[in-house]
């Protein structure tokens, strides 16, 4: 007989120990996130909806053109008419805070992994396990550390969204034409200069594809966050499920989809704007491939980088 290895017990002990040893750390994280999400939510819901709808529409027009602007206008008007505006803005706040933090962690980590093999070797299996661990398994420690409410939702979302951000950044930097990097080195550029002047700009489309994925994954966690007690569309859907209320379940789900399409198209533009037209074209192709809207919120990494052609 193989004796039972009390792995689960060890993890549980570890969590207890952490809670005991550094409770202030979790309190601090919790407080900061709460403030960020609350602040952003306040900013989004306090003015009348029309203010932000105009802002979003103009943003869409500037970054992507009239079609997305039209979509934005109609989509958010629909949200208002469904009386889901506040919930949608709560969700948007949660997604943005989580995505910004996830990007702020994953992009530098991706850069490090691309530059140092050792980092890559360590980070990769961690990312793999993060990505394959069922979401609900994060939830238990998240609740332990941060209680219920919006913070565990944000934390779980961040953990969930980091891997593709790191991966796409690392891949993007590794894919930068080796000769161009060599050219910078051959003319005496310092490693930091090579990174700033060559690797980051040339990897920008891939990095932005990563940021886009981070946002999409964050959105896909909305319902889970609702389960943990975060206010917003997730809560609407969860409530509908528990009450078997098909109508409001559909409306909540639809609002998530509308928001997802808006964010996807909008952030898809980042990679294009400032960067070179060559990659712009590659990106246009990718845009065409990805036109099935929410379907790709979870599939993630496959297409964006593949579509980027070098040379």
């Amino acid at each position: 007989m193989i004796p039972h290895v009390p792995l689960g017990q060890w993890v549980s002990d570890l969590i207890d120990w952490l809670l005991d040893a550094v409770p202030w750390l979790f309190d601090a994280i919790s407080a900061v996130m709460q403030v960020l999400v609350d602040g952003l939510t306040d900013a989004l819901v306090s003015p009348p909806p029309v203010v932000w709808i105009v802002v979003f529409t103009v943003l869409a027009l500037l970054l992507r053109g009239p079609w997305l602007a039209l979509y934005t206008l109609l989509a958010f008007l629909l949200v208002v008419s469904l009386e889901l505006w506040v919930e949608t803005m709560q969700t948007l706040a949660l997604v943005l805070v989580a995505a910004v933090i996830a990007a702020a962690i994953s992009v530098p980590l991706g850069v490090l992994a691309a530059r140092h093999r050792a980092v890559s070797v360590v980070v990769r299996p961690v990312l793999d396990s993060m990505q394959t661990t069922p979401v609900f398994v994060y939830l238990i420690p998240a609740v332990f550390f941060f209680g219920v409410g919006v913070v565990p939702g944000v934390v779980a979302t961040i953990l969930f969204a980091i891997p593709p951000g790191v991966r796409l950044t690392e891949l993007g930097i590794r894919q930068v034409d080796r000769e161009v990097v060599e050219a910078a080195q051959a003319f005496g550029a310092r490693p930091g200069q090579v990174l700033r002047e060559v690797q980051l700009p040339l990897a920008l489309p891939a990095i932005m594809a990563g940021v886009n994925q981070v946002i999409m994954l964050a959105l896909s966690m909305v319902v889970t966050a609702g389960l943990l007690g975060a206010a917003g569309l997730g809560a609407v859907v969860v409530r509908a499920v528990t009450q078997l209320d098909v109508a409001s379940g559909f409306e909540g789900g639809l609002a998530v989809v509308l928001l997802a399409v808006f964010l996807d198209r909008l952030t898809g533009a980042f990679g294009q704007r400032s960067v070179l037209s060559r990659l712009r074209q590659a990106r246009v192709r990718r845009g065409r491939q990805q036109d099935a809207p929410v379907a790709d919120t979870r599939v993630g990494a496959a297409s964006p980088v593949g579509a980027r052609s070098v040379g």
Partner: peptide
Amino acid sequence: RTVRNQKISMVFQHFALLPHRTVRENAAYA
């Protein structure tokens, strides 16, 4: 790096220009 910058220059098979810089900026890289 100083030697590479001032004594030895290199020309590459696939040109290896910075695509986001102008021709003049590329020429001025060193």
